[in-house]
């Protein structure tokens, strides 16, 4: 029982970090209908900005986080302007965007490899990692609780932004139909920039938590593959789906590794992806295809 509780806590803490990344994926997907594989790159950008700011300003996590959020958000907008906009202006085929995003993910990774090198970097202990006992039954670290809380705060903030602001309304409208939203007077290019900025910002939040926990290196963005799987399981384009899918995935990974076999972990994760695609291709919370077409 204690073990089960411990593994469930482990699973939620892993899932909450997946959620931050998966939500960014889903947000972009809901507007432009393509999976932005460069998303992992924004995460790495956020991580490195945080790392170097911490070194420069003396372990002030607030300044470092703020700069990381802004930097990753702006890079996401620049990538969209530079690599995706010329394509989406020329064609409706989202496959080209997908290919461009794969290219950008390799470009970003290698920019870091050649400039700062492939070495593993540890962020200074700006976030407390002390073990915390949960009702005397299980142990987690202060860091895990914090990452879960921060993930919830940012996701709630996103929800508020989408449901109460004018641009939030425009984004929701665009997720139904981008063209019609444009015809209704929404500045589509500005809207897409905002979406990418928000996605980049969320990626930076995930990037900071990931690099504190797992160290920072140029290939850290690869972990977004798991977040992508979570987004698909939850239903690409659906924000609640991305969160639920991430938590399910985090739990499944931990429970498999803990109770079945640690080597079965990835088989279970990708098996779940295949089963979802077979039985419910739009995912748990996915919109019906008829709405999309």
């Amino acid at each position: 029982m204690e073990t089960l509780l411990q593994q469930v806590i482990n699973g939620f803490s892993l899932g909450s970090v997946y959620a931050l990344i998966a939500v960014g994926y889903s947000l972009v997907y809901s507007i432009l209908l393509f999976s932005n594989f460069a998303h992992g790159g924004f995460l790495v950008i956020g991580g490195y900005i945080c790392y170097y700011t911490l070194a420069a300003v003396g372990n002030n996590i607030w300044v470092a986080s703020l700069l990381a959020f802004l930097g990753a958000g702006v890079s996401a907008v620049l990538v969209e302007r530079g690599a995706y906009k010329p394509i989406r202006e020329r064609t409706n085929v989202t496959l080209y965007l997908l290919i461009a995003s794969m290219g950008m993910s390799i470009v970003i990774e290698n920019i870091f490899v050649v400039t700062v090198g492939g070495r593993f970097r540890a962020l200074p202990p700006v976030i407390p990692m002390t073990p915390v006992s949960v009702f005397g039954l299980a142990t987690t670290s202060a860091f895990d609780i914090l990452s879960l809380v921060m993930a919830m705060i940012f996701l709630a903030g996103l929800q508020v932004f989408l449901s109460t602001t004018k641009w939030g309304l425009a984004i929701r409208a665009a997720s139904y139909d981008l063209k019609t939203a444009g015809l209704m007077g929404v500045n589509v290019n500005k809207l897409i920039s905002i979406v990418f900025f928000v996605a980049g910002l969320l990626a930076a939040v995930g990037g900071i938590f990931l690099s504190v926990r797992y160290t920072l290196y140029p290939q850290l963005g690869l972990i977004t593959i798991k977040a992508f799987v979570a987004a698909v399981i939850g239903g690409l384009g659906s924000l609640p789906g991305a969160v639920v899918g991430s938590l399910i995935l985090g739990l499944a990974e931990m429970l498999t590794a803990g109770f079945i076999s640690s080597q079965m972990r990835d088989i279970v994760v990708f098996g779940m992806l295949v089963l979802t695609l077979l039985w419910r291709p739009t995912g748990l919370f996915g919109k019906h295809i008829s709405e999309k077409v």
Binding site: T3, Q6, Q7, N10, L14, R213, Y214, L222, I223, E253, M254, L255, T256, A257, G258, S261, S262, Q263, R265, D266
Partner: peptide, 17 residues
Amino acid sequence: LGFRAGTDVDFRAQLTT
């Protein structure tokens, strides 16, 4: 218990066992 270097970064499941 096992893990895969290069892809696994979280070992808390194995460590709990």
